[in-house]
Design a protein around this nucleic acid. Structure first.
Lengths: 199, 199
DNA sequence: TGATTTTTAGAGTTTTCGCTCTAAAATTTA
DNA sequence: TAAATTTTAGAGCGAAAACTCTAAAAATCA
């Protein structure tokens, strides 16, 4: 049993706050003082628990890659109507693109790589994140095939990758404040791809 | 007529070098000393011409938005076989994604917004860049319609936006070192979309 | 109670960075 | 030649940042 005063703060909450800050402003623009102010931790607590600023970044990123977009994945995997779930996922892009600065937007933080001592870190996280969504899409599409919603001979992994690529593209477009019609066209293209594979 | 010793260095070359540095490492991670070393300019020359670091960034970004991907746009607009030109554009993604860290990769720098005094700057550039490619794609597709390669009733702007969204997505995927099969699937989806509209 | 550990507050250290200043040499036009 | 301007070199300044250190209070368990 551990002795001594127990840790008071919620690590996950601290990491989520930190991830949001890094994602919004970039690694270099977030100072340790900023982190302390927004998380409520005293500086010593932060250094005691995370070692240094790069440690906070590393753990925040790791958690982000492990948990981001969990609601969407859960929605895909738990739905009784797999095809409708995938369609809902595609339609969700439009909402996300509007508020993309704050919500589930991977590349923003993956690009703002700070910590030059571990240049591969963000990519590893990006792959983890992508892998999770990709897998969920793929299994959901296969369920749609099994339930007779999609043609048995359709290439579910090709469809999943196409949708995921479009999703990344929409995130970029939304982030840059580009015309909404571009997003509409991309969403329509995603839905079209599903229609093509319909049984 | 201007008097005095003329400027020796090539501004465009300096800006291209600076843009590459900002794109690779991000605004904050590039110091003025770095800029001087890699461009060959003495510090005073840099401050004399550009005012400050943000000025270098601003002008480099502006030039990037104005000239990036010029070769691809020229290839689209000058081709005698518009459909083949668009197909070549799509196939080019694969090459770009492999070397995406250095070449024509917009979002990397658009995300590494430094200069908090002008937070909209990168977005303006991103829109300019996107607008140019988008327009070139659209006009080339309409030429394909005019020449009877694509069906007269096809929605060229929808196709252009879909291809552009896929292109952004491929850039993200390539940048993160994700599986090559994802890129292959995205390229195939782009070519498929063109096949659908074939006359 | 005593040992252990976390918590907080704040001052201090070292480094880096953006930028300025000084000052002189080089290259142009009038 | 004279005026104007760019060029280079290097020292230095003020601010901010990451991180450390001191020191003491609080909360747990044996």
């Amino acid at each position: 049993m551990p002795r001594g005063r127990p840790q008071k703060f919620d690590e996950e909450q601290v990491l989520d706050t930190a991830a949001a800050m890094f994602r919004r402003d970039g690694y270099d623009a977030v100072s340790v003082a900023d982190l302390c102010r927004e998380t409520g931790l005293a500086m010593q607590s932060l250094y005691h628990r995370f070692g240094d600023k790069a440690g906070v970044y590393r753990e925040a990123l790791e958690r982000f890659g492990r948990t981001a977009n969990d609601p969407q994945i859960a929605a895909l995997e738990s739905s009784d109507d797999p095809l409708a779930a995938v369609e809902a996922f595609v339609r969700l892009w439009k909402r996300h693109a509007g508020a993309s600065r704050d919500d589930g937007c991977l590349f923003t933080q993956a690009m703002s790589r700070g910590d030059r001592s571990d240049p591969e870190g963000p990519d590893v996280i990006a792959r983890a994140f992508t892998g999770r969504v990709r897998k969920a899409l793929n299994t959901t599409l296969r369920r749609a095939v099994a339930e007779g919603q999609l043609r048995p001979d359709c290439d579910t992994s090709a469809i999943a990758d196409t949708l995921l690529t479009l999703a990344f593209g929409v995130a970029v477009i939304g982030r840059g404040g580009m015309p909404a019609s571009m997003i509409d066209h991309a969403v329509a293209a995603g839905l079209d791809r599903l229609q093509q594979a319909r049984a």
